[in-house]
Design a protein around this nucleic acid. Sequence first.
DNA 1: TTTCACTTTAGAATTATTATAAACTAGAAT
DNA 2: ATTCTAGTTTATAATAATTCTAAAGTGAAA
Lengths: 135, 135
Amino acid sequence: MKHKDILNKLRTSGLRPTKQRVEIAKFLFDREKTFHFTVESLNKLLLKKITTKFALATIYNTIHAFKKAGHLNKVEVRGKRSYFDTNITNHHHFYDSDTSELIDIDVKDVIIQKLPKAPNGKKIKNVEVFINLKN
Amino acid sequence: MKHKDILNKLRTSGLRPTKQRVEIAKFLFDREKTFHFTVESLNKLLLKKITTKFALATIYNTIHAFKKAGHLNKVEVRGKRSYFDTNITNHHHFYDSDTSELIDIDVKDVIIQKLPKAPNGKKIKNVEVFINLKN
DNA sequence: TTTCACTTTAGAATTATTATAAACTAGAAT
DNA sequence: ATTCTAGTTTATAATAATTCTAAAGTGAAA
């Protein structure tokens, strides 16, 4: 993803392309594979690049703005901190509690044959399958 | 569940039947249906009964002891606080984010036809299906 | 270039949970 | 029954993730 595309991505999302946002967007979206991170891990990774100064709150702000704009998925897992996922298609997860690692599962790899119907007045928004791993 | 049974349940779990534990155990397990709660909601409900004085820490301690003994399931949901579930059989959940309510789904009501295999060296511990609801 | 709404920032505030250390207590030993 | 002790409870402090706040900074429209 080129610099121009990043700027465009931000602008079309109604986000002013500030230095911080551009840096974070490049870091997150300029990659082949899907990327899972927590605010803490992202902060550490960004610190190594030092190109721009980031307050922790800015990372929170930016991540939430990206989330709101639909560029990130929030994945809440057992435990305290939230994970974010650059894969915004509908998908499922393996979770390895030993390493606290999330691994994407393509929707195609999970086929659900039977689901209960939603309680009265409610509809199903989405179905998340969470596969916990052990050794 | 009679008083004696509660005492027994505690003792066989290696938990000394203190006033607090007995009260909490009665409140949690002396009911027909499965019961979902957070530490906060449980605390509020117990406060209404005032029979015994409970420190918040005691509720945490007790709930964790019950969890450890296998009398409660911990269900971690999007958001901050953890839910506990008196249904300790394997099962799935509806989650209604409007009301922050969890609803049990029997394992029989979800049939999964296809699952990916676990990453190398890992095994599947369990599969949780989480159905998010909307109106 | 000026202006201003949107952003960033540092630090304080909040919230859920865990840790601590002193006071308490169930039940075994005397 | 009384004493003893390890397991518990308690109030409070500590921790950790996240959100809030208010002041300073900055894109970009005019």
